[in-house]
Design a protein around this nucleic acid. Sequence first.
DNA 1: ATTGTAAATGACAACGATTTCATAGCGGCC
DNA 2: GGCCGCTATGAAATCGTTGTCATTTACAAT
Lengths: 335, 335
Amino acid sequence: MVSVVAVATHAGVSPATVSRVLSGRIVVAPETRARVLEAVKELGYRPNEMARSLRAGRGRGVALVTGDVEQGIYAALAKHVQAELEALGLDLLLFNLGHREDRLRHFLERAPSLGLRGVLLSSPHIMDMAELMPLILTATASGIDVISVSQDLSAYGIASIIHDDVGGARAAAEHLIAQGRTPIAFLGRIATSAIGRARFEGYRDALLAHEQAIDPDLVWDISEGYRADAGYQATSNALAKGLHFRAVLTASDELALGSMAAATDRGHSVPGSVAFVGFGGLGWGVFSRPSITTVSLDVGAVARAVRDRFKGEDEVPSTPERIVVPARLVLRQSA
Amino acid sequence: MVSVVAVATHAGVSPATVSRVLSGRIVVAPETRARVLEAVKELGYRPNEMARSLRAGRGRGVALVTGDVEQGIYAALAKHVQAELEALGLDLLLFNLGHREDRLRHFLERAPSLGLRGVLLSSPHIMDMAELMPLILTATASGIDVISVSQDLSAYGIASIIHDDVGGARAAAEHLIAQGRTPIAFLGRIATSAIGRARFEGYRDALLAHEQAIDPDLVWDISEGYRADAGYQATSNALAKGLHFRAVLTASDELALGSMAAATDRGHSVPGSVAFVGFGGLGWGVFSRPSITTVSLDVGAVARAVRDRFKGEDEVPSTPERIVVPARLVLRQSA
DNA sequence: ATTGTAAATGACAACGATTTCATAGCGGCC
DNA sequence: GGCCGCTATGAAATCGTTGTCATTTACAAT
């Protein structure tokens, strides 16, 4: 491994000078500078990131903690965030909880010793943040910038970048109501997910605003992840019970796909007999048939907000603590 | 930050002893040991990972280099690999190339200085590995275990964990032929992707084995990523040209979905008029309507192979250099 | 001519953990 | 009783980088 010392020797200067040249922040005689750069190139020197991190007290890693990257929206988030971080010379560490809270606890315990620059918490289906707060505070105290993505934790003093889930769901419900597609069912996690609850609130708001009663039988509060099979299951059950509904507002595109399949399998036409709205705006939603009308979440905007948060060199950014990214209803075939 | 020195002082021993107790590999008097553990617990000490890495010469990170995590198969890979690595106390760094080769180069240049334990190259749509070999060799020389995932680079002496793409595609084509669904079109990257080419070979093998001619018009060699829109586009073009085919063997589930949509939109029934086979076996493929018959790739098996590779403490594992994970044809509605 | 000042650079310490080397203490054996 | 050897532990060096402090040299000002 070629180190500063090697470069310094080669260039006939001290290691300190090499460091100065490379940092660029300190004046070095042009001739010396040239000689050092020459040596650097000749030896193919690259500063050791581990030594740098130790010296600086923190590294260049930012962790993304997700519930399940296999879910399209998280994969998209990982992709966009990674791209933004890479542009800042930061690395993305991925921690996938699989919706198991103990792993989040374990990660948070480890976080301070890893020298992370930041932690993006994007595991929205975990409710008792209160219990985890001590760990989070320990992390922030150790210089880690903890940001909640998707879930609003600004009440706890944690910077939050969130989608307008309430507004998005409301817009979707309004659209369905305007088309006369009532009654509308809601499918998602409510009791066990802050995000799911926000979407449910949007649904409820719209219904109440139009003096529609909320039928508990049409509120399908699932407890598993937002995968297609959960949607299929819940919808099949509802149909088996003979419940009547003309539309389903779901909390993810995957749920919508599964839900739609359940209806289709029982001979209901989509959107003629039942309409479906998803959440996320994933790429493949355009190509299912019928394609999925969805509340599109601008993942790129979230990633840019993350970038803004990390672009400075200062320890604790002073940007606003709560950023809301708008959600947009994208009309396609299913509703 | 509480360090070994703090713990040592607290326990009335030297830092060396603390280290010995925690490593567990060296005998320490039971009474001393107890005192150290007590101090560790009392102070909430956690070894600084950056210092450890510097001292050890390498850290605990493993990088996963993907083409596009937003594609289901890579997201699934990331998820499973992360889970396996976490069990080994290793962290996953995610680098998403977005199919841009310069970023791979850039990453490989940086890799040795990051102290990575390993690099999982899973960006199969890059062909001229020969050009990148010097960088890869530099990485391996610096102690990084470079493993090619999906793409067979064992000819270059790089450990490779691959799917049986040829066999999987052949099985799919055989299935279509057995059902009399000919002529069969192939949709995927051939010229610009090692994996795509392998899948094409399986297709070709099956056709030739059954004395079917390969119609160049039915070989749709796309150049973009394996996203649904590319599949839609290619298939629409083919249909617009009035080409006749009874089945499409595609190189990903996303392509299959897009391709299927194109056919559906032009009034063809699936699978009655045209059949479709995808590649990957993603969760949502079960719930599209029609659901997608697919060559399922066992991502979990790949992740386990990765785990086996990293579970030892030794620098260069001596496990076989080429592991082939079987691919399985999963019959669903589309074919 | 002498002193003051700024620029350029080198020596050295420090980040925190681990490992090697050295040593104190103790028990056993002849 | 003296010596050998083993066990348990401490002191110190090391990983590679960077920041602080000190030193040198040159030049300007009086």
